[in-house]
Protein backbone atom coordinates (compact mmCIF):
# COMPACT_ATOMS: atom_id res chain seq x y z
CA UNK A 1 0.00 0.00 0.00
CA UNK A 2 2.95 2.33 0.59
CA UNK A 3 3.81 2.35 -3.11
CA UNK A 4 4.16 6.07 -3.46
CA UNK A 5 3.53 7.25 -7.05
CA UNK A 6 5.70 9.91 -8.74
CA UNK A 7 2.87 12.50 -8.48
CA UNK A 8 2.65 11.87 -4.77
CA UNK A 9 6.43 12.12 -4.41
CA UNK A 10 6.30 15.46 -6.19
CA UNK A 11 3.73 16.70 -3.68
CA UNK A 12 5.72 15.37 -0.70
CA UNK A 13 9.01 16.91 -1.87
CA UNK A 14 7.29 20.17 -2.72
CA UNK A 15 5.73 20.26 0.76
CA UNK A 16 9.13 19.70 2.36
CA UNK A 17 10.73 22.39 0.21
CA UNK A 18 7.93 24.91 0.82
CA UNK A 19 7.99 24.28 4.57
CA UNK A 20 11.81 24.43 4.76
CA UNK A 21 12.02 27.70 2.82
CA UNK A 22 9.13 29.18 4.81
CA UNK A 23 10.80 28.26 8.13
CA UNK A 24 14.26 29.49 7.15
CA UNK A 25 12.89 32.83 5.90
CA UNK A 26 10.61 33.33 8.89
CA UNK A 27 13.18 32.46 11.57
CA UNK A 28 15.38 35.61 11.53
CA UNK A 29 12.26 37.81 11.46
CA UNK A 30 10.75 35.66 14.21
CA UNK A 31 13.85 35.99 16.42
CA UNK A 32 13.91 39.77 15.98
CA UNK A 33 10.21 40.10 16.82
CA UNK A 34 10.44 37.65 19.72
CA UNK A 35 13.31 39.69 21.19
CA UNK A 36 11.36 42.95 20.78
CA UNK A 37 8.30 41.46 22.47
CA UNK A 38 10.32 39.82 25.25
CA UNK A 39 12.81 42.54 26.12
CA UNK A 40 11.62 45.94 24.96
CA UNK A 41 8.78 48.25 25.87
CA UNK A 42 7.54 50.49 23.13
CA UNK A 43 4.46 52.21 21.88
CA UNK A 44 2.17 49.80 19.98
CA UNK A 45 3.66 46.66 21.51
CA UNK A 46 0.25 45.06 22.17
CA UNK A 47 -0.74 45.86 18.61
CA UNK A 48 2.37 44.15 17.24
CA UNK A 49 1.74 41.18 19.54
CA UNK A 50 -1.83 40.91 18.23
CA UNK A 51 -0.63 41.22 14.63
CA UNK A 52 1.84 38.34 15.11
CA UNK A 53 -0.96 36.15 16.46
CA UNK A 54 -3.50 37.20 13.83
CA UNK A 55 -2.88 34.26 11.42
CA UNK A 56 -3.69 31.91 14.31
CA UNK A 57 -7.20 33.32 14.82
CA UNK A 58 -8.19 34.52 11.34
CA UNK A 59 -9.85 31.96 9.05
CA UNK A 60 -6.99 30.69 6.83
CA UNK A 61 -9.03 31.53 3.75
CA UNK A 62 -9.07 35.18 4.89
CA UNK A 63 -5.29 35.24 5.35
CA UNK A 64 -4.88 33.63 1.93
CA UNK A 65 -7.17 36.15 0.31
CA UNK A 66 -5.37 39.06 1.99
CA UNK A 67 -2.08 37.67 0.68
CA UNK A 68 -3.62 37.44 -2.78
CA UNK A 69 -4.76 41.07 -2.58
CA UNK A 70 -1.34 42.27 -1.38
CA UNK A 71 1.06 39.97 -3.21
CA UNK A 72 -0.95 39.07 -6.32
CA UNK A 73 0.42 40.30 -9.65
CA UNK A 74 -1.65 43.46 -9.40
CA UNK A 75 -1.41 43.77 -5.64
CA UNK A 76 0.52 46.79 -4.27
CA UNK A 77 3.39 44.69 -2.88
CA UNK A 78 3.26 41.96 -5.53
CA UNK A 79 3.58 44.45 -8.41
CA UNK A 80 6.57 46.22 -6.84
CA UNK A 81 8.38 42.95 -6.03
CA UNK A 82 7.74 41.57 -9.53
CA UNK A 83 8.78 44.76 -11.37
CA UNK A 84 11.89 45.60 -9.38
CA UNK A 85 13.17 42.32 -7.95
CA UNK A 86 11.60 39.79 -10.30
CA UNK A 87 10.05 37.96 -7.34
CA UNK A 88 6.64 36.54 -8.17
CA UNK A 89 4.44 34.90 -5.55
CA UNK A 90 1.10 34.43 -7.30
CA UNK A 91 0.48 30.79 -8.32
CA UNK A 92 4.13 29.85 -7.69
CA UNK A 93 5.68 27.59 -5.06
CA UNK A 94 7.29 30.73 -3.60
CA UNK A 95 3.78 31.98 -2.87
CA UNK A 96 3.02 28.72 -1.10
CA UNK A 97 6.16 29.28 1.01
CA UNK A 98 5.03 32.83 1.82
CA UNK A 99 1.56 31.63 2.84
CA UNK A 100 3.05 28.84 4.99
CA UNK A 101 5.55 31.25 6.54
CA UNK A 102 2.80 33.68 7.51
CA UNK A 103 0.50 30.94 8.83
CA UNK A 104 3.19 29.25 10.90
CA UNK A 105 4.67 32.54 12.19
CA UNK A 106 2.76 32.65 15.52
CA UNK A 107 3.86 29.10 16.33
CA UNK A 108 7.44 29.93 15.43
CA UNK A 109 7.60 33.14 17.49
CA UNK A 110 6.01 31.84 20.68
CA UNK A 111 8.67 29.34 21.86
CA UNK A 112 11.44 31.77 20.88
CA UNK A 113 9.84 34.55 22.87
CA UNK A 114 9.32 32.29 25.89
CA UNK A 115 12.91 31.12 25.85
CA UNK A 116 14.26 34.68 25.52
CA UNK A 117 12.07 35.69 28.47
CA UNK A 118 13.49 32.75 30.42
CA UNK A 119 17.07 33.97 29.93
CA UNK A 120 18.17 35.50 33.24
CA UNK A 121 18.39 39.24 32.66
CA UNK A 122 21.10 39.41 35.32
CA UNK A 123 23.40 37.44 33.02
CA UNK A 124 22.86 40.07 30.34
CA UNK A 125 23.76 42.76 32.89
CA UNK A 126 26.93 40.86 33.78
CA UNK A 127 27.87 40.76 30.10
CA UNK A 128 27.29 44.50 29.85
CA UNK A 129 29.63 45.24 32.76
CA UNK A 130 32.26 43.13 30.99
CA UNK A 131 32.14 45.48 28.00
CA UNK A 132 29.59 43.85 25.69
CA UNK A 133 27.52 46.30 23.61
CA UNK A 134 23.78 45.43 23.43
CA UNK A 135 23.99 43.53 20.11
CA UNK A 136 26.95 41.50 21.41
CA UNK A 137 25.06 40.72 24.62
CA UNK A 138 22.34 39.37 22.36
CA UNK A 139 24.74 37.38 20.16
CA UNK A 140 26.90 35.91 22.94
CA UNK A 141 24.46 35.45 25.83
CA UNK A 142 20.76 35.83 24.95
CA UNK A 143 20.73 33.94 21.65
CA UNK A 144 22.93 30.97 22.68
CA UNK A 145 20.90 30.50 25.86
CA UNK A 146 17.60 30.61 23.95
CA UNK A 147 18.85 28.50 21.03
CA UNK A 148 16.94 25.37 22.07
CA UNK A 149 13.77 27.50 22.08
CA UNK A 150 14.67 28.84 18.65
CA UNK A 151 15.08 25.29 17.34
CA UNK A 152 11.82 24.19 18.99
CA UNK A 153 10.06 27.15 17.33
CA UNK A 154 11.56 26.21 13.98
CA UNK A 155 10.38 22.61 14.35
CA UNK A 156 6.85 23.67 15.29
CA UNK A 157 6.75 26.25 12.50
CA UNK A 158 7.97 23.64 10.04
CA UNK A 159 5.30 21.16 11.15
CA UNK A 160 2.60 23.81 10.80
CA UNK A 161 3.93 24.84 7.38
CA UNK A 162 3.85 21.22 6.16
CA UNK A 163 0.17 20.94 7.08
CA UNK A 164 -0.95 24.38 5.92
CA UNK A 165 -3.88 24.19 3.52
CA UNK A 166 -6.47 26.99 3.60
CA UNK A 167 -4.29 30.04 3.03
CA UNK A 168 -2.05 28.26 0.52
CA UNK A 169 -4.86 26.99 -1.73
CA UNK A 170 -6.59 30.40 -1.60
CA UNK A 171 -3.43 32.31 -2.47
CA UNK A 172 -1.66 30.06 -4.98
CA UNK A 173 -4.33 27.48 -5.91
CA UNK A 174 -3.62 23.74 -6.34
CA UNK A 175 -1.33 23.22 -9.34
CA UNK A 176 0.41 19.81 -9.44
CA UNK A 177 4.18 20.22 -9.52
CA UNK A 178 4.03 23.92 -8.66
CA UNK A 179 1.78 24.57 -5.68
CA UNK A 180 0.24 21.20 -4.91
CA UNK A 181 1.47 20.29 -1.43
CA UNK A 182 0.58 17.12 0.50
CA UNK A 183 -2.53 18.75 1.95
CA UNK A 184 -3.89 20.01 -1.36
CA UNK A 185 -3.00 16.68 -3.02
CA UNK A 186 -5.05 14.86 -0.36
CA UNK A 187 -7.89 17.31 -0.94
CA UNK A 188 -7.84 16.59 -4.69
CA UNK A 189 -7.62 12.82 -4.16
CA UNK A 190 -10.59 12.76 -1.80
CA UNK A 191 -12.68 14.42 -4.49
CA UNK A 192 -11.60 11.86 -7.11
CA UNK A 193 -13.36 8.48 -7.36
CA UNK A 194 -10.92 5.65 -6.43
CA UNK A 195 -8.61 8.21 -4.82
CA UNK A 196 -9.03 6.84 -1.29
CA UNK A 197 -5.94 4.58 -1.13
CA UNK A 198 -3.65 7.29 -2.49
CA UNK A 199 -5.11 9.80 -0.06
CA UNK A 200 -4.54 7.39 2.81
CA UNK A 201 -0.88 6.98 1.80
CA UNK A 202 -0.36 10.73 1.97
CA UNK A 203 -2.24 10.88 5.27
CA UNK A 204 0.25 8.37 6.72
CA UNK A 205 3.18 10.39 5.35
CA UNK A 206 1.91 13.59 6.94
CA UNK A 207 1.30 11.85 10.28
CA UNK A 208 4.90 10.57 10.22
CA UNK A 209 6.26 14.06 9.47
CA UNK A 210 4.12 15.70 12.17
CA UNK A 211 4.99 13.15 14.87
CA UNK A 212 8.70 13.41 14.03
CA UNK A 213 8.49 17.19 14.35
CA UNK A 214 6.72 17.01 17.72
CA UNK A 215 9.26 14.57 19.13
CA UNK A 216 12.01 16.87 17.83
CA UNK A 217 10.44 19.90 19.53
CA UNK A 218 10.16 17.98 22.81
CA UNK A 219 13.82 16.95 22.61
CA UNK A 220 14.95 20.53 22.02
CA UNK A 221 12.85 21.75 24.95
CA UNK A 222 14.58 19.26 27.25
CA UNK A 223 17.97 20.44 25.98
CA UNK A 224 16.98 24.00 26.83
CA UNK A 225 16.49 23.17 30.49
CA UNK A 226 19.83 21.38 30.67
CA UNK A 227 21.64 24.22 29.00
CA UNK A 228 20.20 26.84 31.34
CA UNK A 229 21.42 24.82 34.31
CA UNK A 230 24.94 24.76 32.98
CA UNK A 231 25.47 21.03 32.67
Amino acid sequence: MLDITPTEWTAILLSLRVAAVATLMATPVGIALAWLLARRDFWGKSLLDALVHLPLVLPPVVTGYLLLLAFGRRGPLGAVLADYLGIVFAFRWTGAALACGVMSFPLLVRPIRLSIEAVDHRLEQAAETLGAAPWRVFATVTLPLSLPGVLAGMVLGFAKAIGEFGATITFVSNIPGETQTISSAIYSLIQTPEGDTAALRLVIVSIVIAVTALIGAEWFARRATQRLHGN
Binding site: L123, A126, E128, T129, L130, G131, A132, P144, R227, G230
Partner: peptide, 18 residues
Amino acid sequence: AYRRRIGYVFQDARLFPH
Protein backbone atom coordinates in the same frame (compact mmCIF):
# COMPACT_ATOMS: atom_id res chain seq x y z
CA ALA B 1 27.72 50.23 31.35
CA TYR B 2 29.58 48.50 28.52
CA ARG B 3 31.71 51.57 27.86
CA ARG B 4 32.68 52.27 31.48
CA ARG B 5 35.33 49.59 31.99
CA ILE B 6 34.05 49.08 35.50
CA GLY B 7 34.18 45.47 36.66
CA TYR B 8 31.35 44.06 38.76
CA VAL B 9 31.34 40.98 40.92
CA PHE B 10 27.79 40.13 41.87
CA GLN B 11 26.65 38.37 44.99
CA ASP B 12 25.40 35.48 42.85
CA ALA B 13 28.49 35.18 40.57
CA ARG B 14 26.41 35.24 37.36
CA LEU B 15 28.77 33.07 35.33
CA PHE B 16 27.55 32.30 31.82
CA PRO B 17 26.15 28.75 32.10
CA HIS B 18 26.68 27.91 28.43
